[in-house]
Each structure stands twice: as C-alpha cells, then as structure tokens.
C-alpha cells in the first residue's frame, strides 16, 4: 500500500511556544492511522498543521503533492475533510445547510442532493432534524453532523479529531461502527486522533504515540495494543 499522506519533520508553534517537534508519520491509501497521546501532547495541533490552520514547518505530502505552503481552503479542495475539535457546527444554520456547506468546494449539481440523502440514510437522526438549527442538536447528533459534513466533500482523506469526545459510550460505539462502514464502502483514508486509545487501536491499522510533540512509538495497531507500556499508561489494564 502506498501512502496518501506523508509527513516529515513536522513542526508547529503557537506564538513562541513550540508544540510539535519534528513528527514523521504516514497514512496509507485506504487505511486508518491513529494518533494517540495524553492531553496536550500535540494531537489536535497535528491535524491543524495538516490543514494549515496553525503555523507549521516541515514536509507534508498529500497524494504525492506538497501541501505545507497551501492555504486551508486549497487543501480542502484537494479532498482533505476535517471533523474538527468541538465539531465545528454552524450553530445558527440548519442541519441541511450545514451539510450543503460540506460540499461547498464541489461543483453545484444534482449529486450533492443525492449525497445529502445518502448522509440521511446513514444518520436517520439528522433527517429528522434537517430544518432545525444545528446548534440545538445534542452532542452526539452534532458529531454525526460533523462526520456527515466531512463526507459531503467526498474526501480522499478524513481527519477526525476525537470523535468520541463528550459522548456517552453507546453513542461512541455507534459512531465508530458508522465510521467503519463508511471506510468499507468508500475506501476513504482516515487519520484519527483519540484519547480513548483502546477504541482507536481496535479501529486503526497503524498507530503513532505522541508525547510532548514527538513520536515515541509507532507500528501496527494490533502490535501496539499488546505492548506492555502502552497498556499500562494508555489502556489501563
């Protein structure tokens, strides 16, 4: 498998505070890569750096193309959809308008409404709430909306920032089942950031462990899951 995303020596900083100190990782075409780590390790910053919403240095290749100097809007146009931290809901817009926004970079056409219907079939709850203000949706529904909005781009790569954040275990489980289904159906590659390491390691093929802005361990997800150290500090059993 070739890599759809290759990152070499990625550094990022907020003001004069360095958050990432030279990360190397990749996401395989059609694969799922997980970034694990504690709070403040730099996981969210990594996703921001890929999308260019934070100042970054290093080399980022997407489908062979260098993107580290591109503005966010152009990166999105290449087919990278982010499900951002805090879900990025357009609170005063309706659910359906939120979905339309996901496809904003695609040419206007009938297939957009077809895709919206497809999202509704994946997430029937969203259909019930289609003309409701998105800000009034529950946390789980907003997470579904964020995923659906990302799917509307027909992305080649999805960046997921803590899809389980603040959700009840049942809903988290449901969302991960849907992500697995989406991956099976559309073959989209995913880079997922999670604090819930056991969940992420079951879902991912590859995993990287970040501590204070550096990668301390990498490998196949199932091997990492067996690692004693990881087990003790991240999985808690």
């Amino acid at each position: 498998m070739s890599a759809i995303l290759e990152v070499r020596g990625l550094e990022a900083s907020y003001g004069d505070r360095t958050v990432l100190r030279g990360l190397d990782f990749e996401v395989a075409e059609g694969g799922v890569t997980a970034l694990l780590g504690a709070n403040g390790a730099g996981k969210t910053t990594t996703l921001r750096a890929i999308c260019g919403t934070v100042r970054r240095r290093g080399e980022i290749r997407f489908a062979g193309k260098r993107i580290e100097r591109m503005p966010t809007e152009s990166i999105v146009r290449l087919g990278i959809a982010q499900v951002p931290e805090g879900r990025g809901t357009f609170a005063t817009l309706t659910t359906e308008e939120n979905l339309h926004l996901g496809a904003m970079t695609r040419p206007n056409g009938r297939d957009i409404s077809l895709d919206i219907e497809r999202c509704y079939s994946i997430f029937p709850r969203l259909k019930e709430r289609r003309s409701q203000q998105a800000g009034t949706l529950s946390g789980g529904e907003q997470q579904m909306l964020a995923i659906a909005r990302a799917l509307m781009l027909r992305p080649k790569l999805m960046l997921l920032d803590e899809p389980s954040f603040g959700l009840a275990p049942m809903i988290t489980k449901h969302i991960f089942e849907i992500l697995a289904e989406v991956k099976r159906e559309s073959g989209v590659s995913m880079l997922i950031v999670e604090q819930n390491a056991s969940l992420a390691l079951r879902f991912a093929d590859q995993a990287y462990l970040i501590e204070t802005g550096s990668i301390v361990m990498s490998g196949e997800a199932k091997i990492i899951r067996e690692d004693e150290g990881v087990r003790a500090s991240y999985l808690g059993y």
């Binding site: 999308c51 919403t53 966010t72 809007e73 999105v76 146009r77 959809a81 982010q82 951002p84 990025g88 809901t89 357009f90 609170a91 005063t92 817009l93 926004l101 996901g102 904003m104 970079t105 909005r149 781009l153």
Partner: peptide, 12 residues
C-alpha cells in the same frame, strides 16, 4: 457564524 469551521469546508 463559524469562520474556522468555514475554512475547513473550503469557504474563502
């Protein structure tokens, strides 16, 4: 409504 999120769906 949400400039950062708008950027992430490709709105200029």
């Amino acid at each position: 409504v949400n400039p950062e999120s708008a950027r992430l769906v490709g709105v200029r």
